[in-house]
């Protein structure tokens, strides 16, 4: 279905180590336009690190990363990694939106300003235009009435919905979700998942790192199972969840479903 679509993001053989601990051991991944990819796997398997490398919050030690076929980082002849110059790097990384587990909203700004700050300061959009778009996004995440509220007055679910609106305000080509519901009380995860589900329906390109197996199965076009810094298996959700080919996948799913 996405065979002809462009790769929005592509990682080739990326390695990341912290000291002697190798967190990513040669991960390759390409996400096509309109595709929703869920990344699952046990804690410490490198899922979050992978996302953080893709949006340049962590630097990679080996491999290459491309956004819309332009390199963020690539390997030089001698095997070391070279990053794009600062300005270009920022420009490319703006094409990726990131939603954090801990929201990272700006506490000193109102909900509306949280959303308009980057479009105005970074993308140089006019204030009026930025605010109009922000209000549309707030309507989308169901928080129009909170526009003048400070983040400290919001629930976790509301904070995360604002964070999603904030990421969307930069009109990213792809949105990366790093365990978007892990910091939420169980009764608040639904409202956040609904927003992400709507985005998937609109064919937003996404990578979602999640522990919500039911959600991954429902929303993702493709599921990637990671363990110990490697992609163990990937495929359609129906295949991964009902007939995993690898023993490690089966064992992980067995444990998760028992819980």
């Amino acid at each position: 279905m996405y065979v002809d679509a462009m790769n929005v993001i592509e990682a080739k053989n990326i390695h990341k180590r912290y000291g002697s601990l190798e967190v990513l051991k040669g991960v390759s991944l390409a996400v096509k336009e309109g595709e929703a990819v869920a990344v699952i796997g046990p804690s410490g398997s490198g899922k979050s690190t992978l996302l953080r490398c893709l949006c340049n919050l962590e630097t990679i030690d080996m491999g290459s990363i491309y956004i819309e076929n332009e390199p963020i980082a690539y390997e030089t002849g001698d095997g070391s990694v070279r990053y794009a110059p600062d300005r270009q790097l920022r420009k490319l990384c703006r094409k990726t939106g990131m939603v954090f587990q801990s929201f990272n909203l700006f506490p000193h700004l109102t909900v509306l300003k949280n959303i308009t700050e980057a479009p105005i300061a970074v993308a140089k959009v006019g204030r009026k235009e930025a605010e109009e778009y922000a209000l549309q996004l707030l309507e989308k995440v169901g928080l129009t009435d909170k526009k003048d509220t400070y983040p400290s007055r919001l629930s976790g679910g509301q904070k995360q919905r604002v964070a999603i609106a904030r990421a969307l305000a930069m009109k990213p080509k792809i949105v990366l979700f790093d365990e978007p519901t892990s910091a939420l009380d169980p009764e608040l995860t639904g409202e956040v998942l609904n927003v992400i589900r709507d985005l998937a329906r609109e064919n937003m390109t996404m990578i979602i790192v999640t522990h919500e197996m039911g959600f991954a199965r429902e929303v993702a076009d493709r599921v990637i199972f990671m363990d110990e810094g490697e992609i163990v298996e990937e495929g359609k959700p129906s295949a991964i969840f009902t007939a995993p080919r690898m023993k490690r996948t089966e064992s992980f799913l067995g444990k998760v479903i028992c819980l």
């Binding site: 340049n56 919050l57 990726t96 990131m98 801990s102 990272n104 700006f106 993308a123 904030r166 990421a167």
Partner: peptide, 14 residues
């Protein structure tokens, strides 16, 4: 918090 720098960085702030 470090998350504030990260939040700003992914939005493209210098």
């Amino acid at each position: 918090d470090k998350g504030q720098y990260e939040g700003a960085k992914v939005l493209g702030f210098t």
